[in-house]
Design a binder for these strands. Structure first.
Lengths: 350, 350
DNA sequence: TTTAGCACTCACGGCTTTCGAGTGCTAACA
DNA sequence: TGTTAGCACTCGAAAGCCGTGAGTGCTAAA
């Protein structure tokens, strides 16, 4: 159904107001806040029509109107006015990105923190994965006479390590030899190519006690599996307390369990399914049964950094979400995050 | 004030019952659940005396009694019966400790997860720090023609790394040389000894472009600062929904903000101040104004792993906490956590 | 010192009442 | 035909009002 210009105006006004106030909005309230040049009775008639057409809903007979999912969708797709980040907000984001972090995970959670802070909703990031991880270098380094740490450097500067303990003291040369052997054998190889079969085959050729090889090859094998999958970083969960739809303790409980289920969980599934899109896209209502069940919406966007690392970031919140602001924030973030890895030259003067 | 044996018995009964039920306990209720051999009137008299002496409180005139802080303290110090972990619970802990983790942080949060799961409260761990970190090895590894990753291995198998990008492509030999130089210079040195002054002095001697050296020495310098301080890992925050004192949305909000303030925050301060004690110790009420304000208690215990890494772990919950169970759980954990680092030989057969 | 008995207190849940924001409908008007 | 003033109606939310019952403290007798 095509909406008349006036209907569009009214629908936009209702969604805007409802997003601000969280209260069902009535005809009089609209007139106060928007220049429409008609009376409340006319607005009521139009609202009745919009309800009839499925854009609005009434919590009960004598209350104001609330946008339906269709209403929100129309709003997001064509009615909403773009939100421009303030200079302050942009600065926040750039600062977070310019900072030098001790570990990559820290960086990711800081960034997630910023996004949730700016939007006032909950932010969820996936750790980035590469489609073509390969091993750049392997090194075994002695920690004490009976333990060493195995370090694997992947492309994009990803570093993985694990400490291993052996049953009796080893000679320094033995460790070096093994280190060189592994490095020669595996450097340059794509992780995906390292199936367990190939590893087993390889293992049979090395003249070292088998339990040590088990540890080493287990690590490599897990690495291959681990890097295929991503993890979830989530922050700003307590922001929901700022939104009245979560004044009910059970809703809050529900939300936190949903969102903090993290890696094992439902959020991950939703992100996995979400289509890859550099532009932020909105998932709500019928798009996903889980979100519908919890009365939530998500705005999801891809991000990429370095040469080949890609991940997703999302904002989770009530369906009554400030989509304009959320979308702008994710947009700005995804445009600027690219240089997070390695690009240190810009901020050495700071 | 010395308590008669019967008063002790009654106080213990009240605290036990209250911990279970979260309801003020009345004289009749006690008689039902405990063998006292006296009438409810007698119990009432004793309760009045215990209240007079400050061990009990009444929410209002005609309600049952609730333990006061003094009551809890007496209970914890001398009345409480020790809780024995079930075989199942012990197995949970041992499994978590036996598992091989990709990264140390993951291990810590898994362990924290287990502790919060078993106790049904919120667990807070500090990342472990060593009093004498020293550098075992430094290595620069090429990632692409214009970036490399700097890896620093500390004792106890702690690995830190940062990716660095340079303005123009470098020669492989230059990187190797620099890598060797750094390694020769710093391997074996205690991190605490590396003040900024010393680093600056050293920096002047190296014939490499200064912005690159800045990046490298900044990293080392931050490393020294970073390892002095610890971070906070926290899990099981949603467990509070299982306790009726948090049925009030504001209490819950308050609690989550308190506990998730994490690194910037109050919890960290409390843990810092907590006396070092291998045995779990209880902090509540007047011990700490912050906890008092939020109506919370903590049980804190040290843990140590490897040869020289030490941290603290704590359970945060309502003052009405199952202290016996929490203490036993932390005890068991701190006894078994020691081998988390490196001790892989026990579970290769699994 | 203990205990039976009893009057008293007070939070809690359920019920009713009141209030008001907001509606839909009708009839008049442009 | 579209707009608007007017009005009766609806219904949720807040406030007020018991009745109930768990639990107490006190008194007097054992």
């Amino acid at each position: 159904m095509e909406l008349s210009e006036r209907k569009e105006k009214i629908l936009r006004a209702i969604v805007d107001d409802y997003i601000m106030s969280a209260e069902p909005v009535g005809s009089a309230y609209i007139l106060e806040n928007h220049e429409l040049g008609v009376s409340s009775a006319t607005v009521r008639n139009e609202m009745a029509a919009l309800e009839e057409a499925g854009y609005l809903e009434k919590p009960h007979t004598s209350s104001g109107r609330v946008p339906s999912v269709l209403g929100y969708r129309t709003y997001v797709n064509s009615l909403m006015k773009e939100y421009s980040l303030t200079l302050n907000e942009m600065a926040h984001i750039r600062n977070a990105l310019a900072h030098q972090y001790m570990e990559f995970d820290k960086a990711l959670s800081s960034i997630s923190e910023i996004v949730s802070f700016l939007t006032n909703y909950t932010a969820v990031f996936t750790t980035p994965v590469s489609s073509k991880y390969n091993i750049r270098q392997i090194k075994l380094i002695s920690v004490d006479p009976q333990s060493f740490v195995m370090i694997v450097v992947l492309n994009e500067g990803v570093v993985k390590n694990r400490t291993m303990r052996v049953k009796k003291p080893y000679e320094a040369e033995v460790l070096d030899k093994l280190s060189n052997y592994l490095n020669n054998k595996f450097a340059g190889i794509n992780l995906n190519a390292l199936t367990d079969d190939i590893l087993d085959e390889e293992k049979a050729l090395v003249p070292v006690e088998s339990y040590i090889l088990d540890m080493i090859f287990d690590f490599i094998s897990e690495l291959a599996k681990d890097t295929e999958d991503y993890n979830i970083v989530c922050s700003g969960t307590t922001n929901i307390f700022n939104h009245p739809e979560f004044n009910d303790i059970n809703k809050t409980k529900d939300f936190l369990n949903f969102v903090r289920s993290g890696n094992s969980g439902e959020i991950k599934e939703i992100l996995k399914k979400a289509s890859s899109n550099a532009e932020p896209s909105v998932i709500m209502g019928d798009d996903n049964p889980l979100l519908k069940e919890h009365g939530l919406s998500m705005v999801v966007s891809d991000y990429s950094l370095g040469n080949d690392l890609k991940g997703k970031m999302a904002i989770v919140g009530p369906t009554r979400m400030d989509y304009a602001k959320v979308i702008s924030t994710l947009n700005y973030m995804s445009q600027h995050i690219k240089g997070l890895i390695g690009e240190t030259d810009e901020n050495t003067d700071k």
